[in-house]
Amino acid sequence: MGIGTSIFLIAVGAILTFALDANIGGVSLDVVGWILMAAGVLGLIMTALVWGRRREVVTRTEPVEYRQVEQRRDVAPPL
């Protein structure tokens, strides 16, 4: 779940919880709103943890091997 989806869930949950006052078929929209907001916050935290891991820098401690390239000078250039 991305940041945008998490923010969308939080917004929809807040609308259902605080802006509407209705019950549909015995289901309270307040409870559905709180559940959506909790899912959005959880998704936001999980996304932040995943993005935080991507920013870690990996360093190598082993030395880099270098090859010496020799240039031959005894060959005449092409005509």
Rank of each mutant, 00 (worst) to 15 (best):
V50C: 07
G43R: 03
M46C: 06
L49I: 15
V27L: 14
V31T: 10
L36W: 00
D30S: 10
I45C: 05
A48I: 15
M37A: 14
I45A: 08
A39M: 11
L49N: 07
G43P: 03
V41G: 09
L29V: 07
A39G: 06
A38I: 14
V32P: 00
T47Y: 10
R55C: 00
G25K: 09
A48L: 12
M46N: 12
R54Y: 04
I24D: 03
W51K: 11
L36N: 03
R55Y: 02
R55E: 08
V32T: 07
G43V: 00
G43C: 04
G40L: 02
A39H: 03
A39C: 11
V27H: 12
R55F: 00
V32G: 01
T47V: 08
R54T: 09
L42E: 01
S28M: 06
I35C: 11
A48D: 05
V32D: 01
A48R: 14
G26S: 00
V31P: 00
W51N: 08
I35K: 13
M37Y: 01
G52A: 13
R55S: 08
L42A: 08
A38W: 02
L44V: 03
V41M: 15
M46F: 09
T47E: 15
G25N: 13
L29A: 00
G25P: 00
M46H: 09
G52E: 10
G52Y: 10
I45W: 05
I45Q: 01
L49G: 08
V41Q: 09
I24W: 06
G25T: 12
G52W: 11
I24R: 06
G43H: 01
L44I: 07
V27G: 03
R53K: 12
R54E: 13
L44A: 11
D30A: 09
G33E: 07
G25M: 13
L36Q: 05
T47L: 03
V32L: 10
M37I: 14
M46A: 11
A38Y: 05
L44T: 09
V41C: 10
V41W: 07
A39T: 13
W51L: 11
T47H: 14
W34Y: 12
V27K: 13
L36F: 06
L29E: 03
G33D: 12
I24K: 04
V32C: 02
R53C: 05
G43A: 05
M37W: 05
G25D: 09
G26E: 00
V41P: 05
T47S: 10
S28Q: 11
L44R: 05
L29F: 04
V41E: 07
T47M: 10
